[in-house]
Simulated scan of single mutants.
Amino acid sequence: MKTVETSRLILRRLTLDDSARVEEYASDYDVAKTTLNIPHPYPEGGAREFITSILEAERNGKIAIFAITRKEDNGLIGLINITGTNANRRAEIGYWIGKPYWGNGYGTEAARAVIKYGFEELNHNRVYALAFTDNPGSWRIMEKSGMKHEGILRQHAIRDGRPVDMTYYAILREEYTG
């Protein structure tokens, strides 16, 4: 996996050394409630377990995951991933940014870079993402990244024991402008 650079960010390989920072941000309820996969309360030591499992999935070609770091201080501010190559040439991206860094455009910058990676490095034809309908911060990142809204998936997932609607966005290779 290569490192991806943007004007303000470096998207690099996630390592076990990142576990303390991942756990710190993932433990924040405001971050956890925006995802399907971050439990709350976040278990102590859970980040090491998560990183170990996601790196195994990466070795198997199922996913590419990046630590989102700021160039100015090399500090980890979040994670972003894209699913690996497949016969349908489509990939899902998923991301979260630590709450202290919300509202600075880092999510959009990272999403644009990973969409580019998906088209140019992984040869995908379609990149998509989903977010809770009550999470406008996430779906605005999708819009600003060039994705188009394709619909609402009603009661598509279960979060905290209740069905939740997901909004669905995608961008096609032919729409991608680089």
Rank of each mutant, 00 (worst) to 15 (best):
K2N: 09
V4K: 09
E5M: 09
T6N: 14
S7L: 07
L9C: 03
L9H: 05
I10T: 07
L11R: 00
R13N: 13
T15A: 06
L16S: 13
D18S: 02
S19K: 09
A20D: 14
R21S: 09
R21A: 10
V22W: 06
E24A: 05
E24D: 03
E24K: 13
A26F: 00
Y29N: 08
D30E: 07
D30N: 12
A32W: 00
A32E: 00
K33Y: 12
T35E: 01
P39F: 10
H40I: 01
P41F: 06
P41M: 03
P41Y: 05
Y42W: 12
P43L: 09
P43W: 07
G45N: 05
A47R: 09
E49N: 15
E49R: 12
E49K: 08
F50Q: 07
T52S: 07
S53E: 12
S53Q: 14
I54T: 15
I54M: 15
E56D: 13
A57M: 10
A57K: 14
A57I: 14
E58A: 12
R59I: 14
R59V: 07
K62V: 08
K62M: 13
I63M: 11
A64H: 10
A64N: 10
A64G: 14
F66V: 06
E72G: 05
D73C: 08
D73V: 13
I77F: 04
L79A: 04
L79Q: 12
I80T: 06
T85L: 09
N86E: 01
A87P: 00
A91Q: 00
E92Q: 15
I93C: 00
G94P: 00
W96D: 01
P100R: 03
P100I: 05
P100S: 03
Y101D: 02
Y101T: 03
W102Q: 07
N104I: 07
N104C: 14
G107S: 11
T108A: 06
A110W: 12
A111Y: 08
A111G: 09
A111M: 11
A113F: 13
V114W: 13
G118P: 11
E121Y: 08
H124C: 07
V127L: 01
Y128C: 05
Y128L: 02
Y128K: 01
A129N: 01
A129W: 00
L130F: 14
F132M: 04
T133I: 10
T133K: 10
N135Q: 13
P136Y: 01
S138L: 06
R140Y: 06
R140V: 02
R140I: 04
R140W: 02
R140T: 11
E143C: 02
K144D: 14
S145W: 03
G146F: 07
G146L: 03
H149A: 06
H149V: 11
H149I: 03
E150K: 10
G151K: 06
I152G: 12
I152Q: 11
L153R: 04
Q155V: 01
Q155Y: 05
Q155I: 02
Q155A: 14
H156K: 13
I158E: 13
R159S: 10
R159I: 09
D160S: 14
D160V: 09
V164W: 03
D165H: 14
M166G: 08
T167D: 15
Y168V: 00
Y168L: 10
Y168S: 14
Y169C: 04
Y169E: 04
A170F: 10
A170R: 11
I171Q: 06
R173H: 07
E174R: 08
E174M: 06
T177A: 15
